[in-house]
Write a protein that binds this DNA or RNA. Sequence first.
DNA 1: TTTAAAGTTTAGCATAGGCTAAGTTATATG
DNA 2: CATATAACTTAGCCTATGCTAAACTTTAAA
Lengths: 146, 146
Amino acid sequence: MTKSPKKGTSAKLRSAAFKRIRADHSAELAEDYVEMIADLIDERGEARCTDVAMRLGVANATVVKTLKRLQTMGLVTQEPYRAIFLTADGWKMAEDGKRKHALVEKFLLALGVSQDTARIDSEGIEHHVSVETLRAMGKFLVRNGG
Amino acid sequence: MTKSPKKGTSAKLRSAAFKRIRADHSAELAEDYVEMIADLIDERGEARCTDVAMRLGVANATVVKTLKRLQTMGLVTQEPYRAIFLTADGWKMAEDGKRKHALVEKFLLALGVSQDTARIDSEGIEHHVSVETLRAMGKFLVRNGG
DNA sequence: TTTAAAGTTTAGCATAGGCTAAGTTATATG
DNA sequence: CATATAACTTAGCCTATGCTAAACTTTAAA
Protein backbone atom coordinates (compact mmCIF):
# COMPACT_ATOMS: atom_id res chain seq x y z
CA MET A 1 0.00 0.00 0.00
CA THR A 2 1.91 2.97 -1.20
CA LYS A 3 -0.07 5.77 -2.69
CA SER A 4 -3.85 5.57 -2.92
CA PRO A 5 -4.76 8.62 -5.01
CA LYS A 6 -8.35 8.37 -3.88
CA LYS A 7 -10.51 11.46 -3.69
CA GLY A 8 -8.20 13.39 -5.98
CA THR A 9 -6.78 15.65 -3.30
CA SER A 10 -3.02 15.93 -3.55
CA ALA A 11 -0.93 15.96 -0.42
CA LYS A 12 0.39 19.34 -1.42
CA LEU A 13 -3.05 20.89 -1.71
CA ARG A 14 -4.08 19.31 1.52
CA SER A 15 -1.12 20.52 3.51
CA ALA A 16 -1.54 23.98 1.99
CA ALA A 17 -4.88 24.29 3.74
CA PHE A 18 -3.34 23.52 7.10
CA LYS A 19 -0.44 25.81 6.46
CA ARG A 20 -2.86 28.61 5.79
CA ILE A 21 -4.69 27.88 8.99
CA ARG A 22 -1.48 28.11 10.99
CA ALA A 23 -0.61 31.39 9.31
CA ASP A 24 -4.14 32.68 9.93
CA HIS A 25 -3.79 31.94 13.59
CA SER A 26 -0.73 34.02 14.12
CA ALA A 27 -2.30 36.95 12.26
CA GLU A 28 -5.57 36.50 14.07
CA LEU A 29 -4.53 37.73 17.45
CA ALA A 30 -2.93 40.82 15.98
CA GLU A 31 -6.14 41.61 14.12
CA ASP A 32 -8.27 41.15 17.20
CA TYR A 33 -6.08 43.48 19.24
CA VAL A 34 -5.94 46.11 16.57
CA GLU A 35 -9.69 46.04 15.94
CA MET A 36 -10.36 46.33 19.61
CA ILE A 37 -7.97 49.23 20.05
CA ALA A 38 -9.66 51.03 17.16
CA ASP A 39 -13.06 50.47 18.75
CA LEU A 40 -11.86 51.82 22.07
CA ILE A 41 -10.40 54.92 20.48
CA ASP A 42 -13.65 55.51 18.59
CA GLU A 43 -15.83 54.91 21.61
CA ARG A 44 -13.94 56.68 24.35
CA GLY A 45 -11.15 58.63 22.76
CA GLU A 46 -8.32 56.43 23.96
CA ALA A 47 -7.37 52.79 24.40
CA ARG A 48 -5.88 51.63 27.67
CA CYS A 49 -4.32 48.34 28.49
CA THR A 50 -6.90 47.49 31.10
CA ASP A 51 -9.81 47.94 28.73
CA VAL A 52 -8.25 45.72 26.12
CA ALA A 53 -7.52 43.10 28.77
CA MET A 54 -11.08 43.17 30.05
CA ARG A 55 -12.67 42.93 26.66
CA LEU A 56 -10.44 40.09 25.56
CA GLY A 57 -10.82 38.35 28.88
CA VAL A 58 -7.08 38.00 29.52
CA ALA A 59 -4.69 39.29 32.18
CA ASN A 60 -3.17 42.71 31.96
CA ALA A 61 0.34 41.39 31.68
CA THR A 62 -0.65 39.35 28.67
CA VAL A 63 -1.82 42.46 26.88
CA VAL A 64 1.38 44.30 27.69
CA LYS A 65 3.45 41.50 26.27
CA THR A 66 1.43 41.20 23.10
CA LEU A 67 1.50 44.94 22.55
CA LYS A 68 5.28 44.73 22.46
CA ARG A 69 5.00 42.34 19.56
CA LEU A 70 2.46 44.53 17.78
CA GLN A 71 4.84 47.42 18.24
CA THR A 72 7.69 45.59 16.55
CA MET A 73 5.23 44.63 13.82
CA GLY A 74 4.60 48.33 13.27
CA LEU A 75 0.90 48.21 14.10
CA VAL A 76 0.75 50.21 17.32
CA THR A 77 2.81 52.82 19.18
CA GLN A 78 2.94 53.45 22.88
CA GLU A 79 4.86 55.42 25.49
CA PRO A 80 5.35 53.80 28.90
CA TYR A 81 2.33 54.29 31.17
CA ARG A 82 0.41 56.01 28.41
CA ALA A 83 -2.48 55.12 26.10
CA ILE A 84 -2.10 52.96 23.00
CA PHE A 85 -2.16 54.40 19.47
CA LEU A 86 -2.46 52.78 16.06
CA THR A 87 -0.06 53.41 13.21
CA ALA A 88 -1.36 53.92 9.68
CA ASP A 89 -0.89 50.20 9.06
CA GLY A 90 -2.72 49.49 12.29
CA TRP A 91 -5.71 51.57 11.23
CA LYS A 92 -5.80 49.87 7.87
CA MET A 93 -5.77 46.44 9.44
CA ALA A 94 -8.47 47.48 11.91
CA GLU A 95 -10.71 48.81 9.18
CA ASP A 96 -10.27 45.81 6.92
CA GLY A 97 -10.98 43.55 9.85
CA LYS A 98 -14.06 45.43 10.92
CA ARG A 99 -15.45 45.44 7.42
CA LYS A 100 -14.88 41.73 7.13
CA HIS A 101 -16.31 41.09 10.56
CA ALA A 102 -19.43 43.13 9.86
CA LEU A 103 -20.04 41.31 6.59
CA VAL A 104 -19.72 37.88 8.15
CA GLU A 105 -21.98 38.86 11.02
CA LYS A 106 -24.65 40.28 8.72
CA PHE A 107 -24.39 37.19 6.57
CA LEU A 108 -25.00 34.90 9.52
CA LEU A 109 -28.00 36.95 10.56
CA ALA A 110 -29.39 36.74 7.03
CA LEU A 111 -28.85 32.99 7.16
CA GLY A 112 -31.22 32.91 10.10
CA VAL A 113 -28.85 32.69 13.04
CA SER A 114 -29.61 34.55 16.29
CA GLN A 115 -27.93 37.83 17.14
CA ASP A 116 -25.79 36.41 19.95
CA THR A 117 -24.61 33.44 17.93
CA ALA A 118 -23.90 35.63 14.93
CA ARG A 119 -21.74 37.82 17.10
CA ILE A 120 -19.81 34.97 18.63
CA ASP A 121 -19.38 32.85 15.50
CA SER A 122 -18.41 35.75 13.27
CA GLU A 123 -15.57 36.50 15.67
CA GLY A 124 -14.16 33.07 15.04
CA ILE A 125 -14.99 32.77 11.36
CA GLU A 126 -13.82 36.14 10.10
CA HIS A 127 -10.19 35.15 10.15
CA HIS A 128 -10.70 32.09 8.01
CA VAL A 129 -12.73 33.35 5.09
CA SER A 130 -10.97 34.04 1.82
CA VAL A 131 -11.79 36.97 -0.39
CA GLU A 132 -13.73 34.65 -2.66
CA THR A 133 -15.98 33.41 0.12
CA LEU A 134 -16.43 36.92 1.42
CA ARG A 135 -17.61 37.96 -2.01
CA ALA A 136 -20.04 35.06 -2.18
CA MET A 137 -21.43 36.12 1.20
CA GLY A 138 -21.83 39.66 -0.12
CA LYS A 139 -23.78 38.41 -3.12
CA PHE A 140 -26.02 36.37 -0.90
CA LEU A 141 -26.77 39.46 1.15
CA VAL A 142 -27.69 41.40 -1.96
CA ARG A 143 -30.03 38.61 -3.09
CA ASN A 144 -31.56 38.42 0.36
CA GLY A 145 -32.01 42.07 1.22
CA GLY A 146 -28.92 42.65 3.34
CA MET B 1 -15.02 58.71 30.74
CA THR B 2 -15.84 55.61 32.63
CA LYS B 3 -18.28 53.25 31.06
CA SER B 4 -19.80 54.10 27.67
CA PRO B 5 -22.51 51.43 27.29
CA LYS B 6 -22.67 52.12 23.58
CA LYS B 7 -23.75 49.43 21.19
CA GLY B 8 -25.28 47.34 23.94
CA THR B 9 -22.56 44.72 24.02
CA SER B 10 -21.46 43.96 27.57
CA ALA B 11 -17.79 43.38 28.31
CA LYS B 12 -18.70 39.95 29.57
CA LEU B 13 -20.40 38.91 26.35
CA ARG B 14 -17.58 40.32 24.33
CA SER B 15 -14.85 38.56 26.24
CA ALA B 16 -16.86 35.33 26.10
CA ALA B 17 -16.48 35.32 22.32
CA PHE B 18 -12.72 35.57 22.58
CA LYS B 19 -12.57 32.98 25.30
CA ARG B 20 -14.43 30.61 23.05
CA ILE B 21 -12.02 31.28 20.22
CA ARG B 22 -9.06 30.43 22.44
CA ALA B 23 -10.76 27.26 23.57
CA ASP B 24 -11.61 26.40 19.95
CA HIS B 25 -8.01 26.75 18.97
CA SER B 26 -6.70 24.26 21.45
CA ALA B 27 -9.36 21.75 20.42
CA GLU B 28 -8.80 22.46 16.76
CA LEU B 29 -5.47 20.79 16.38
CA ALA B 30 -6.66 17.68 18.15
CA GLU B 31 -9.62 17.48 15.80
CA ASP B 32 -7.47 17.91 12.74
CA TYR B 33 -5.13 15.14 13.81
CA VAL B 34 -7.90 12.78 14.72
CA GLU B 35 -9.81 13.37 11.49
CA MET B 36 -6.69 12.83 9.48
CA ILE B 37 -5.83 9.63 11.29
CA ALA B 38 -9.36 8.36 10.67
CA ASP B 39 -9.01 9.20 6.96
CA LEU B 40 -5.70 7.39 6.73
CA ILE B 41 -7.06 4.30 8.41
CA ASP B 42 -10.05 4.31 6.06
CA GLU B 43 -7.96 4.91 2.97
CA ARG B 44 -5.00 2.67 3.53
CA GLY B 45 -5.71 0.53 6.53
CA GLU B 46 -3.34 2.23 8.92
CA ALA B 47 -2.11 5.66 9.94
CA ARG B 48 1.61 6.31 10.17
CA CYS B 49 3.38 9.29 11.64
CA THR B 50 4.99 10.20 8.36
CA ASP B 51 1.69 10.38 6.48
CA VAL B 52 0.16 12.61 9.08
CA ALA B 53 3.23 14.85 9.01
CA MET B 54 3.13 15.13 5.22
CA ARG B 55 -0.54 15.88 5.03
CA LEU B 56 -0.38 18.50 7.74
CA GLY B 57 2.79 19.94 6.31
CA VAL B 58 4.77 19.74 9.55
CA ALA B 59 7.91 17.91 10.68
CA ASN B 60 7.77 14.36 11.89
CA ALA B 61 8.97 15.25 15.34
CA THR B 62 6.09 17.69 15.71
CA VAL B 63 3.60 14.92 15.02
CA VAL B 64 5.25 12.64 17.54
CA LYS B 65 5.05 15.28 20.23
CA THR B 66 1.45 16.12 19.51
CA LEU B 67 0.46 12.46 19.48
CA LYS B 68 1.76 12.23 23.04
CA ARG B 69 -0.70 14.88 24.04
CA LEU B 70 -3.54 13.21 22.17
CA GLN B 71 -2.66 10.01 23.97
CA THR B 72 -2.94 11.63 27.39
CA MET B 73 -6.23 13.13 26.19
CA GLY B 74 -7.45 9.62 25.50
CA LEU B 75 -8.01 10.11 21.78
CA VAL B 76 -5.35 7.83 20.30
CA THR B 77 -3.24 4.85 21.28
CA GLN B 78 0.12 3.85 19.96
CA GLU B 79 2.95 1.41 20.56
CA PRO B 80 6.50 2.60 19.89
CA TYR B 81 7.46 2.31 16.21
CA ARG B 82 3.97 1.14 15.31
CA ALA B 83 0.92 2.60 13.60
CA ILE B 84 -1.52 4.95 15.30
CA PHE B 85 -4.98 3.89 16.45
CA LEU B 86 -8.01 5.83 17.58
CA THR B 87 -9.87 5.20 20.81
CA ALA B 88 -13.67 5.18 20.89
CA ASP B 89 -13.57 8.86 21.84
CA GLY B 90 -11.16 9.48 19.01
CA TRP B 91 -13.48 7.88 16.48
CA LYS B 92 -16.37 9.88 17.78
CA MET B 93 -14.47 13.13 17.49
CA ALA B 94 -13.30 12.20 14.00
CA GLU B 95 -16.80 11.41 12.84
CA ASP B 96 -18.33 14.54 14.31
CA GLY B 97 -15.57 16.58 12.76
CA LYS B 98 -15.93 15.00 9.36
CA ARG B 99 -19.66 15.49 9.36
CA LYS B 100 -19.23 19.12 10.32
CA HIS B 101 -16.49 19.60 7.77
CA ALA B 102 -18.52 18.06 4.95
CA LEU B 103 -21.52 20.20 5.77
CA VAL B 104 -19.51 23.42 5.79
CA GLU B 105 -17.80 22.49 2.53
CA LYS B 106 -21.06 21.64 0.80
CA PHE B 107 -22.54 24.84 2.12
CA LEU B 108 -19.73 26.93 0.67
CA LEU B 109 -20.11 25.19 -2.67
CA ALA B 110 -23.84 25.90 -2.64
CA LEU B 111 -23.05 29.52 -1.85
CA GLY B 112 -21.18 29.65 -5.14
CA VAL B 113 -17.58 29.29 -3.99
CA SER B 114 -15.09 27.29 -6.08
CA GLN B 115 -14.13 23.75 -5.15
CA ASP B 116 -10.58 24.62 -4.06
CA THR B 117 -11.62 27.58 -1.97
CA ALA B 118 -14.44 25.60 -0.40
CA ARG B 119 -11.95 22.95 0.62
CA ILE B 120 -9.47 25.39 2.08
CA ASP B 121 -11.93 27.70 3.82
CA SER B 122 -14.04 24.92 5.27
CA GLU B 123 -10.91 23.58 6.95
CA GLY B 124 -10.53 26.86 8.81
CA ILE B 125 -14.19 27.60 9.41
CA GLU B 126 -15.38 24.22 10.66
CA HIS B 127 -13.90 24.71 14.10
CA HIS B 128 -15.66 28.00 14.70
CA VAL B 129 -19.26 27.28 13.79
CA SER B 130 -21.75 26.66 16.56
CA VAL B 131 -24.46 24.06 16.36
CA GLU B 132 -26.95 26.81 15.61
CA THR B 133 -25.00 28.07 12.61
CA LEU B 134 -24.44 24.54 11.40
CA ARG B 135 -28.16 23.97 11.49
CA ALA B 136 -28.80 27.16 9.56
CA MET B 137 -26.33 25.98 6.93
CA GLY B 138 -28.14 22.68 6.74
CA LYS B 139 -31.46 24.42 6.17
CA PHE B 140 -29.93 26.53 3.46
CA LEU B 141 -28.71 23.39 1.72
CA VAL B 142 -32.17 21.88 1.85
CA ARG B 143 -33.68 25.03 0.33
CA ASN B 144 -30.99 25.10 -2.32
CA GLY B 145 -30.89 21.51 -3.39
CA GLY B 146 -27.93 20.29 -1.36
C1' DT C 1 1.44 67.63 49.76
C1' DT C 2 1.25 63.37 51.13
C1' DT C 3 -0.81 59.12 50.32
C1' DA C 4 -3.99 55.58 48.64
C1' DA C 5 -5.94 53.62 44.59
C1' DA C 6 -5.72 52.49 39.97
C1' DG C 7 -3.15 51.43 36.15
C1' DT C 8 1.20 49.71 34.00
C1' DT C 9 5.29 47.13 33.74
C1' DT C 10 8.67 43.47 34.85
C1' DA C 11 9.98 38.95 36.22
C1' DG C 12 9.34 34.35 36.19
C1' DC C 13 6.73 30.39 35.18
C1' DA C 14 3.81 26.98 32.18
C1' DT C 15 1.96 24.96 27.97
C1' DA C 16 1.41 24.38 23.03
C1' DG C 17 3.30 24.03 18.80
C1' DG C 18 6.92 24.52 15.61
C1' DC C 19 11.92 23.26 14.13
C1' DT C 20 16.68 20.50 13.36
C1' DA C 21 19.94 17.12 14.38
C1' DA C 22 21.19 12.87 16.17
C1' DG C 23 20.04 8.31 17.70
C1' DT C 24 17.16 4.00 17.49
C1' DT C 25 14.22 0.39 15.45
C1' DA C 26 11.95 -2.07 11.48
C1' DT C 27 11.92 -3.64 7.09
C1' DA C 28 13.11 -4.68 2.59
C1' DT C 29 16.76 -5.88 -0.60
C1' DG C 30 21.04 -7.69 -2.21
C1' DC D 1 21.31 -12.90 6.86
C1' DA D 2 23.54 -8.67 6.76
C1' DT D 3 22.84 -4.14 5.95
C1' DA D 4 21.04 0.06 3.86
C1' DT D 5 17.02 2.78 3.88
C1' DA D 6 12.99 4.30 5.71
C1' DA D 7 10.36 5.29 9.75
C1' DC D 8 10.20 6.62 14.34
C1' DT D 9 11.93 8.78 18.69
C1' DT D 10 14.58 11.82 21.71
C1' DA D 11 16.87 15.94 22.93
C1' DG D 12 17.18 20.55 22.78
C1' DC D 13 16.02 24.81 20.95
C1' DC D 14 12.64 28.79 19.69
C1' DT D 15 8.32 31.69 19.71
C1' DA D 16 3.64 32.75 21.06
C1' DT D 17 0.28 33.00 24.42
C1' DG D 18 -1.39 32.53 28.79
C1' DC D 19 -0.83 33.21 34.09
C1' DT D 20 0.49 35.38 39.05
C1' DA D 21 3.06 38.19 42.00
C1' DA D 22 5.72 42.09 42.87
C1' DA D 23 7.42 46.62 41.63
C1' DC D 24 6.75 50.95 39.80
C1' DT D 25 4.02 55.29 37.91
C1' DT D 26 0.05 58.25 37.67
C1' DT D 27 -3.74 60.29 39.35
C1' DA D 28 -7.07 61.65 42.46
C1' DA D 29 -8.47 62.64 47.27
C1' DA D 30 -7.78 63.85 51.94
